[in-house]
Design a protein around this nucleic acid. Structure first.
Lengths: 207, 207
DNA sequence: GGATCAACCTGAGTTCAGTTCAATTCAGGT
DNA sequence: ACCTGAATTGAACTGAACTCAGGTTGATCC
């Protein structure tokens, strides 16, 4: 089993959680590059240099946010699909789970998928690289989750036989593409998106 | 009709095209943030400050690349679908056109979709903002292309009635999600991707 | 209650990539 | 030969990420 990064245990006056929350807001609303690292400090109510007590760099913070979101997504998928035997029902449950998120998690999704490319190249500093490697592992885990779901359905005869890996990344791509444009304040409620995508995925896979 | 940005006509010793080509290579391989603007200059064989004769900023160059790629995509879609009456055939043609690209264009796609978020917020400088606005217009045009294709198919009875706008952005999202992971040097040939996605789109829309 | 120690924080200063600017070269037209 | 504007450059500037050397806080132990 992959070793999860040891989450620094929160000393009673640690601001780590507050920094992460503020960073998610800033990076999500304004964009990572566009938000000044010092603005995050301001919002938390500390000097900019204090940030470096918790994160090695602005990018290290971003990678941490991405890893946490990936971990959350993976856990949610597992929770939603375990015990569901019927393949099509499992697929539906997985899709619904993907869109069962809070507004804050929407931001985290946006951040995650806007910076996936960061996970390709290696990082110079130790802790950044650790987060990157862990995040990459989680990406592969999530992809495997979907592939396995499809493979199972195909072997049970519920889904026609196709390249499960390719189709899996297609399904996943379709699902996460929503985070590029969806805004909680926008005209389309997430429930509507969820229903349409759920149907689309089923037709894509089970027809 | 929307006014296309006047492409600066090439003086005989203009290096604009060379800069764009080098930038696409660098941004595509290394990533936009990770590549130093001065590296692009080196590769072209000029001093870094000479770049500012052609582009207002590194970001201005990026936005230009994105706009050009969007223009290309739009033109290709139009060319591929015009005159194709049968909706399912039009859909198939559009998907195939989306994947009928050179290696260089793959890089451009990657750059484009890795920086879509840039098109949201307004830019401070004039020329950057002009490119951004134009690119945004093209994004909407491309989206409308797909939506129209679906609407047409639905009204002709070839596709079941669904929210064409939402389904359209789904189809588009599925198609472009490939550019996040596809590498010409990778194990999966683009032809294979194209076929699978083509089928997936048809099932998604026409079932 | 005072010593101790680690966690936490800060102001001043460094770095470095992107950018500006004034000055210069170059090529084509008259 | 001269002029004009495009193309280029070296030197200097900017600003945001980051470093450093030290200061503060508060929990714990005697």
């Amino acid at each position: 089993m992959a070793t999860r990064i040891v989450e620094p245990e929160a000393g009673p006056r640690s601001k780590r959680a507050a920094i992460l929350a503020a960073a998610v807001d800033c990076f999500g609303e304004t964009g990572f590059e566009a938000t000044k690292w010092s603005t995050v400090a301001e919002r938390v109510g500390i000097g900019q240099t204090a940030l470096y007590h918790y994160f090695e760099s602005k990018t290290h913070c971003l990678l941490t946010i991405m890893r946490l979101e990936l971990q959350r997504s993976h856990d949610k998928f597992t929770e939603a699909t375990e015990g569901v035997e019927e393949p099509t029902e499992a697929l539906r449950a997985a899709v619904r789970a993907a869109y069962d998120v809070s507004d804050h998690e929407v931001l985290q999704m946006r951040i995650l998928h806007n910076h996936m490319d960061l996970l390709s190249g290696t990082r110079k500093s130790k802790r950044e690289e650790a987060e990157r490697v862990e995040a990459r592992k989680l990406v592969q885990l999530v992809e495997r989750n979907w592939t396995n779901l499809l493979v199972k359905g195909m072997s049970m005869g519920a889904f026609p036989l196709r390249d499960a890996q390719l189709l899996g990344s297609g399904v996943l791509g379709l699902i996460v593409s929503v985070w590029r444009w969806y805004r909680p304040s926008g005209p389309t409620p997430l429930s509507e998106v969820s229903e349409l995508i759920e149907g689309a995925c089923v037709r894509m896979v089970a027809t």
